[in-house]
Amino acid sequence: MRYAMAVDTRKCVGCSDCVVACQTENNVPIGYCRDWVVEVVDGTFPQLEIEIRSERCNHCENAPCVRCCPTGASHYSDGGTVLVNSRKCIGCGACIASCPYDARYPHPDGYPDKCTFCLTNRVQKGLKPACVAVCPTKCLYFGDLEDPNSDVSRVLKVRKWKTLIPEAGTKPHLYFLI
């Protein structure tokens, strides 16, 4: 099993519903977020293009945060999901510094927090992650890459896609449909 997410940049309108839904689902404190929206404008008037991306932890196969964690607090869980065990965390901050995607924030309770793909609170109960379930444009696809019939496998088969900073060699599992 290999969980992954795809984001359709052609449909995303950048409304940040994914951010609010994550916040209420996962009790992310006000002022922080586990996912966010990036809008890249290219060109000059009137020849313009915008790419809108809902971003979050890439749940890398070769995750620098897991490699550099001295206590094993950052670890791989089901389907390759990268999670943080806050009880093992000593708050050294190495994982935050090592992430090329800036996907982690220091939770006010003293540990790094980030996207979990809603693994335990939703996915393992048969639900989609909160951001995927809420998205009004249905631009987020989630599922098991090893299952050819999963939403994410099917959409990656028919659409052009890219990943962010592939040169970092992290083998990210957040795909952007372009």
Binding site: C15, S16, D17, V19, V20, A21, T24, E25, N27, A133, V134, C135, P136, K138
Partner: peptide, 25 residues
């Protein structure tokens, strides 16, 4: 109150609230 989610049977939202509705809390 923890969160608000759309009602799947609703024709106005098809189970998906917008950020404002999600943020109604």
């Amino acid at each position: 109150i923890k969160k608000i989610e759309g009602n799947d049977n609703d024709l106005n939202c098809n189970g998906r609230l917008c950020p404002r509705g999600t943020g109604g809390v």
